[in-house]
């Protein structure tokens, strides 16, 4: 990220990959943004240490989806399967990057998936994650890696699910804070480059502050040469925010991750309630 808070420049976009449909949606979106920003695309595959540790338990059995049979887990087999998965993902990454004409690299690490993703995200300007991995439960709930990155991540993060893409309208939450101005600027920059209209939600109880916030939004948008629509939502009603955002369409929502309501469990709940891509600005 450039030091100038008003100018978004992405040099490195990280995409953790696990071959799930959500991670493939993340890859495609990341490639599109990398092409628009001239950024490098970095794929990351984590060989889950938990899986390898499971192989050490002699009594643990792997259950197949199709045959419904039990199978002893073997470390060598599991490692081989993980290597195969890594090769497959590298090939997919190469194809997508070539299609979007962006430079790319692919990294394989071993460890706990959330920890490895968090660590890699430290060096990235933006991390784009699939909403969940190989989930077997209800997809609306985000996966453990996403939950970890949402709660402990420090960089910009985008969460996306299958079937979604970076499409109009771009929506942004604005609280009047410095971070929300940054989120608005990022939304404007990304939206502008893709020529997408923008809708700004002013989170306030009304009164004078609303007027100030509206004025500030106009200032920022004018400076970027973008005409934005503005709508106010009373107080910090996350359910209402969710309803409004969903009602306006499938475009990405830019959220400034700030205390007290846009962090932690509240933020997690807001993300869970939305199908839209979510862009967390920190």
């Amino acid at each position: 990220m450039n030091q100038d808070k008003n100018l978004l420049t992405l040099k490195r976009i990280l995409v953790p990959l696990d071959a799930s449909e959500h991670s493939m949606a993340a890859l495609n979106t990341a490639a599109g943004l990398a092409a628009a920003q001239g950024a490098e695309l970095e794929g990351l595959f984590v060989e889950d240490i938990n899986l390898l540790q499971l192989c050490e338990f002699p009594f643990i059995r792997e259950i197949s989806f199709w045959g419904h049979t039990f199978r002893c887990m073997n470390r060598a087999d599991t490692e081989r399967q993980l290597r195969m998965r890594a090769r497959q993902l590298k090939r997919i990454l190469a194809e997508v990057a070539t299609r979007h004409d962006v430079s790319w690299k692919f990294k394989v690490t071993r460890g706990g998936v959330p920890a490895e993703v968090l660590a890699a995200a430290e060096d990235a300007d933006l991390t784009i994650l699939g909403r969940s991995g190989w989930t077997m439960t209800r997809p609306r709930i985000t996966g453990s890696t996403v939950r970890t990155v949402v709660s402990r991540g420090r960089g910009m993060t985008m969460i996306i699910q299958k079937g979604m893409r970076f499409q109009p309208p771009v929506q942004a939450l604005f609280t009047g804070s410095e971070l929300s101005e940054k989120a608005l600027n990022v939304a404007l920059d990304l939206g502008k480059k893709k020529d997408i209209s923008i809708l700004v939600y002013l989170l306030t109880d009304g009164g004078e502050k609303l007027k100030d916030m509206r004025g500030r939004v106009e200032e920022i948008t004018s400076a970027k040469g973008v005409r934005a629509s503005v709508q106010s939502i009373r107080a910090m009603d996350l359910k209402r925010i969710s309803r409004t955002v969903r009602a306006y369409g499938p475009g990405p929502l830019f959220i400034p991750c700030e205390e007290p309501n846009l962090q932690g469990e509240d933020l997690q709940e807001l993300i869970n309630s939305l199908d839209n891509p979510v862009f967390l600005v920190r």
């Binding site: 938990n50 499971l54 059995r61 792997e62 197949s64 199978r71 887990m73 599991t78 190989w134």
Partner: peptide
């Protein structure tokens, strides 16, 4: 319940919810 490359398995967890190392 943990997902494996070709199916799933049950694994013991610690009280914090993390998978218990062997």
């Amino acid at each position: 319940l943990i997902r494996t490359p070709t199916g799933f398995a049950f694994a013991p967890v610690k009280e914090e919810g993390e998978i218990m190392p062997p």
